[in-house]
Design a protein around this nucleic acid. Structure first.
Length: 480
RNA sequence: CGGGGCGUAGCGCAGUCUGGUAGCGCGCUUCGUUCGGGUCGAAGAGGUCGUGGGUUCAAAUCCCGCCGCCCCGACCA
């Protein structure tokens, strides 16, 4: 159960994060190095994320399927860049059933290869395209340094895999799914994101292009929150997937893949959380309204609970996720703090005075103390709560947008970039450097190019590092 | 993989230097009290001191090995 104070963000953000994920009851430490136990409250948050995404995937014509956890080692090796990118972090099964396996099995770090192997069988004709598949799964990447939700050895995600008849269609799919992620992030998770393309240095192993949504956490570091890859014909060729087009000519299809993981839970925590705990956007909050009953005597208890039960039912009938805190050992004050730690957007207090006055106290998590507390009539409680939830959702997004706008700075020269990065912020500037130049900047400042934003100012400018004329601006930031 | 730190009750720690029958705070259980912003009190439960060996009359404590975890650096959703 949540308890006591947490290290303030201003003192040590990293420590704040590490404490809060446990205190808010999202997760537990695992006996296995680098792995994470996701507790019911944290898993409900993930389920809300899943729900929001899955609905959007279906709406854009995708179907869910499931492929094996184990992948023959040889599959990984078929695409040169892919195997090079992943081999350092693979877990490999060499013994099973008490015997050494003839061919080792890799625990999937991602499923392109095993899915392409199926696509080879499923795709014969242009009539089989586009093929639009998604899977919800766990994957394993043997990470050296891990953090709850942000980077763990095993994590949950979805991975979409599609195949198309033309390069244009594949590119459109890649962009569409990035837009789906952005729409979810902004409208459900209340996380403003910047859409853009990764540089070659940062792109997915085996991809032609990688697109990303980048979000700013409250410590001003960047978090890649979802990615979408245009794989070109790389995997189709490596797996010999071919189809006959309308002219009866054999063609390689164009494939894409896109993923979003439990890292999104960390993104929500770090985008909205404050020193009192989580602040969950209503659309993804497992509990949207918690009711804390207040009474002294048994007589008071029975009338208070009667009102509590009635209001609770009204709210849940209106599809509001409501929870009544019936615990008896704890004082109301304790419960207030406890639910604030868990980030419940709205707290309703019902006491003897409310029973008498036909009122209810509503406190909103996004505004501290008295400022966020109001008394409303019990009649019309559903509408009042609904309005409040909408307002909180919008306010969290606005606060995150404000923070981000205040901390993105345009820079013209390298020393300006260094200054911005050192103070904590994102640096945006013209760029014509090479991959090696990026590497040098990372070494010297810790910052990397997060993306080449789709939203470009237009025109041309002098590269902040080389001075060469460039037509694109990029975003530099320290990242998780 | 390199550098540093730590393994003692569910959690956080003291005890280790100087060997002598294991302690504190929080949490937990029961009872009472309190209840509109983290109530208070009483009585309880709970530990192979990470692990294997060695020294000793006696080891959480000294010696050797092993395992695990955390932090800091190079790689990553």
């Amino acid at each position: 159960m949540a308890q006591q104070a947490v290290t303030p963000q201003s003192v040590d953000f990293s420590k704040w994060y590490n404490e809060i994920v446990y205190k808010a009851d999202l997760c537990d430490q695992s006996p296995v190095r680098g792995c994470l136990i996701i507790k019911p409250y944290g898993y409900e948050l993930w389920e809300a994320i899943k729900g929001g995404l899955d609905r959007r995937f279906k709406a854009t014509g995708h179907q869910n399927a499931y492929f094996p956890l184990f992948i023959p080692e040889s599959f990984l090796k078929r695409e040169a860049e892919h195997v090079e990118g992943f081999s350092p972090e693979l877990a490999v099964v060499t013994i099973a059933g008490g015997k050494e396996l003839e061919e080792p099995l890799v625990v999937r770090p991602t499923s392109e290869t095993i899915i392409m192997d199926s696509f080879k069988n499923w795709i014969q004709s242009y009539r089989d395209l586009p093929l639009l598949i998604n899977q919800w799964a766990n994957v394993v990447r043997w990470e050296l340094r891990t953090r709850p939700f942000l980077r763990t050895t095993e994590f949950l995600w979805q991975e979409g895999h599609t195949a198309h008849a033309t390069a244009e269609e594949a590119e459109a799919e890649t962009m569409q799914m990035l837009e789906v992620y952005a729409d979810f992030a902004v409208n459900d998770a209340a996380i403003p994101v910047i859409r853009g393309r990764k540089t070659d240095r940062e792109k997915f192993a085996g991809a032609m292009h990688t697109y990303t949504i980048e979000a700013m956490m409250r410590d001003k570091k960047a978090l890649q929150s979802g990615t979408s890859h245009n794989l070109g014909q790389n995997f189709a060729k490596a797996f010999d997937i071919k189809f006959l087009d309308q002219n009866n000519e054999s063609q390689y299809p164009w494939t894409t893949s896109w993923g979003l993981s439990t890292r999104m839970v960390g993104a929500i925590v770090m985008t909205h959380g404050d020193d009192k705990g989580l602040r969950l956007p209503p659309k993804v909050a497992p509990i949207q309204v918690v009711i804390v009953p207040i009474f002294k005597t048994d007589d008071e208890r029975s009338v208070v609970m009667e009102t509590v039960d009635r209001l609770s039912k009204e709210l849940s009938n209106a599809a509001i996720r409501v929870h009544v805190d019936r615990r008896e050992g704890q004082s109301p004050g304790f419960k207030f703090n406890d639910w604030e730690m868990r980030g419940v957007p709205v707290r309703m207090e019902i006491g003897p005075k409310d029973v008498q006055n036909g009122s209810a106290a509503l406190a909103r998590r996004d505004m501290p103390g008295k400022e966020g507390k109001q008394f409303v009539p019990q009649a019309g409680i559903v509408a009042a709560v609904q309005d409040l939830l909408v307002d909180i959702q919008a306010n969290l997004l606005k606060q995150a947008e404000t923070l981000r706008e205040e901390n993105i700075h345009d820079v013209k020269r390298y020393d300006e970039l260094k200054d911005v990065i050192e103070k904590g912020g994102w640096a945006r500037g013209w760029w014509a450097g090479t991959g090696d130049d990026e590497g040098r900047i990372k070494e010297e400042t810790g910052a990397t190019i997060r993306c080449i934003p789709f939203a470009q100012p237009g025109g041309k400018g002098a590269c902040l590092l080389t001075g060469k004329e460039s037509a694109q601006v990029v975003l530099f930031a320290k990242a998780y």
